[in-house]
Simulated assay, not measured.
Amino acid sequence: MLEGKVVAVTGAGRGVGREIALLCAAHGAAVVVNDPGVGGGGEGGDAGPAQDTVNDIIAAGGRAHANLASVADPAGATTIIEDAVQRFGRIDAVVNNAGILRDTIWHKMSHEDWRAVIDVHLNGCFNVSKAATPYFREQQSGSFIHFTSTSGLIGNIGQANYSAAKLGIVGLSQSIALDMARAGVRSNCIAPFAWSRMTASIPAETPAQKARLEKFKAMSADKIAPLVVYLASDASAEVTNQIFSVRKNEIVLFSKPRPVRSMTKLEGWTPESIAAELIPAFQPSFARADEVSAHVFGYDPI
């Protein structure tokens, strides 16, 4: 599917990113494996994970190069794309997978925890995508594959920073898809359900939380990679501006926000008439106030 292509995958030293890099290489792509090897909250750094993925790709007969830059740094993000072009001659697809978590309940969230997560997820997507854009425009082709989350699409407890970043990525992807369509460039999002270092940090104190975590453990990271390979390939030339999700062997297409109900009052609305007429009419269509992804996906994937 990717013979002759060059793909850059961020956060590819471990977990979902590693599986994506391995499968892209198995399908013929040369892969820039980006990962600074930081901890789950963005601390430290280790060249080992990125190099391990590269070594495994090369051992299987593929082509790969390790890049240790932080996507949060615009100059570092640019090196990811420059490494692809200088070492392999071009760049065909960007997989924005890198991420960190600094979960905490809203009233305890610090400015630093907010900025750190936004910088890696949302600004990181912008930085790497921006660096690849001139090459995509020149060659009149390219694919952006951004990783969002149901934490952003639906919401989640204790993840205001992560949720905001992940929904922001959807907005970014949609605008890129519209702006770059004339250049033959596409942009799509994937919300993965998979067991990784990041999902391992989900609290599991109550029996219900522990049961939910066990379900996550059955959703292996390698299940996400086939959709990424497809979206990076020429076979997906007509697929852009979409939001997908992968839950084990299930692939989901998400709708975008659309009007659900409307009501017109010819004489105009007052606060009192909103309370008396509008809200009672709208209430049956309200999303539940405590809704999280478990309410939307009320069944186990196979």
Rank of each mutant, 00 (worst) to 15 (best):
Ile58Asn: 14
Ala98Gly: 04
Ala66Val: 07
Ile91Asp: 01
Ser70Glu: 12
Asp113Ser: 08
Trp106Ala: 13
Arg102Tyr: 05
Val71Tyr: 06
Leu101Ala: 09
Ala98Asn: 08
Ala69Cys: 08
Asp92Ile: 02
His107Leu: 13
Ser70Asp: 14
Ile57Lys: 14
Ala93Asp: 01
Leu68Glu: 09
Asp52Thr: 15
Gly89Leu: 03
Thr104Val: 12
Ala69Val: 06
Ile100Ser: 04
Thr79Ser: 07
Ala77Lys: 05
Ile80Pro: 01
Asp83Trp: 00
Asp113Phe: 02
Phe88Asp: 02
Arg102Leu: 05
Gly62Trp: 11
Arg87Glu: 07
Lys108Arg: 15
Asp56Thr: 15
Ile91Tyr: 05
Asn55Gln: 15
Glu112Asp: 13
Asp52Lys: 15
Gly89Glu: 01
Val85His: 03
Gly61Asn: 13
Lys108Asn: 14
Ile81Arg: 00
Ala84Thr: 05
Leu101Trp: 08
Arg63Ile: 08
Arg102Glu: 05
Pro74Cys: 01
Gly89Arg: 04
Asp103Trp: 09
Thr78Gln: 12
Trp106Glu: 08
Ser110Lys: 08
Lys108Met: 12
Glu82His: 01
Ala84Ile: 05
Gln86Phe: 01
Val54Pro: 09
Gly76Gln: 05
Glu112Gln: 12
Arg87Val: 08
His65Ile: 13
Asp73Lys: 07
Gly89Asn: 01
Ile91His: 01
Ala66Tyr: 11
Ala75Glu: 12
Thr78Cys: 06
Asn67Asp: 15
Arg87Thr: 11
Ala69Ser: 14
His107Asn: 10
Ala93Asn: 00
Lys108Ile: 09
Asn96Thr: 03
Ala84Pro: 04
His111Ser: 13
Gly76Leu: 01
Arg90Asn: 08
Ile81Tyr: 02
Val94His: 00
Met109Gly: 04
Ala93His: 04
Gly89His: 03
Thr104Asp: 10
Met109Asp: 05
Ala66Phe: 11
Asp73Ala: 02
Ile105Phe: 10
Gln86Asn: 10
Val54Leu: 12
Asp52Glu: 15
Lys108Pro: 07
Asn67His: 10
Ile81Thr: 05
Val71His: 06
Gly76Asn: 06
Ile100Lys: 05
Ile57Met: 12
Thr79Asp: 03
Ile91Thr: 02
His107Thr: 13
Gly62Met: 13
Val71Gly: 03
Ala59Gly: 13
Ala77Arg: 06
Val95Lys: 00
Asp83Gln: 02
Thr79Gln: 08
Ala98Asp: 07
Asn67Thr: 09
Asn96Tyr: 03
Gly61Cys: 13
Ala77Trp: 07
Arg102Cys: 04
